[in-house]
Design a protein around this nucleic acid. Structure first.
Lengths: 140, 140
DNA sequence: ATAAAGTTTGCAATCCGGTTGCAAATGTTT
DNA sequence: AAACATTTGCAACCGGATTGCAAACTTTAT
């Protein structure tokens, strides 16, 4: 992905496109599926952990990312769908394998909605299934 | 709740009913909704953090409890429905308020199921909505 | 261009929830 | 009551998340 494209996407959401931010953005786009802070740290050894963290936080606030809590102990991040805001309706189901620890991202499995009691305002939804993935099932 | 009742429920699930475990069990039953390890620690200052932790882990293994990951950073625990095993189908929706940090438990909102790709075996499901709760909405 | 003001970054330190090793206390068995 | 097993508390540790602070860098105003 070209820098200019990334820059304009950041700018469109009100994020100043610094070198680090562009790097983090590109890396997140390249790594398909949900990634953790440590994943990014490993991939970007020149950047400091705290800088990556602050970048992720900023991206979250500006709706470039959403976060997922699978049962792994560390928060995962994932790019929002390409251009539109990360709305609740395009969030999808995740699966966390209890054997290999991998988090799968079922993009085409749309999260079914529920009717909240009145007065409760939803902002995001997390639907995470834990169990055994296909690959681990077959290995055993 | 009488001790004898608690004791027999523990025994039925294969957990030896020690004094601590009975205490933790009763406290969990009394505190309605999902509670964290720290919540229990505050409520039970005579027990050690590690003892509570080990008790919760034991209860989890023996399906007396289930755990929920809302966005709060700490795992929450909640008693399973009264007598039957804690099956996926009786798990319910949780709501985490981003303002006050409280986790609500919508017992009557059953988690809608999705069709996983073939080969994926579900063991538990987490459906957590984050947003603003009724009470915080009105306060502001 | 340069000084002043604001922003971003890296480092180091800290926080905090979760988890474990170990020895003392308690309970169980014979 | 001796031998053994289980449970508990203490203290320490771990790892992910988060922050204070000063240095580097950008932007703005002069």
């Amino acid at each position: 992905m070209e820098n200019t494209v990334i820059e304009s996407r950041l700018q469109k959401k009100g994020v100043k496109p610094t070198a680090n931010r562009i790097t983090v953005f590109r890396t997140l786009s390249e790594m398909q599926g949900p990634v953790s802070l440590s994943d990014l740290e490993d991939r970007l050894p020149t950047l400091d952990r705290s800088s990556i963290f602050r970048t992720l936080t900023l991206f979250l606030e500006h709706h470039l990312l959403h976060s997922i809590e699978d049962g792994s102990g560390s928060l995962k991040y994932e790019m929002c769908g390409n251009d539109d805001d990360c709305s609740i309706d395009d969030m999808h189901v995740h699966f966390h394998c209890e054997v290999c620890g991998k988090t799968y991202c079922f993009e085409d499995l749309h999260i079914p909605s529920v009717d909240l009691p009145s007065g409760f305002i939803p902002r995001s939804v997390n639907y995470v299934v834990k169990g055994i993935c296909d690959s681990c099932k077959n290995k055993q």
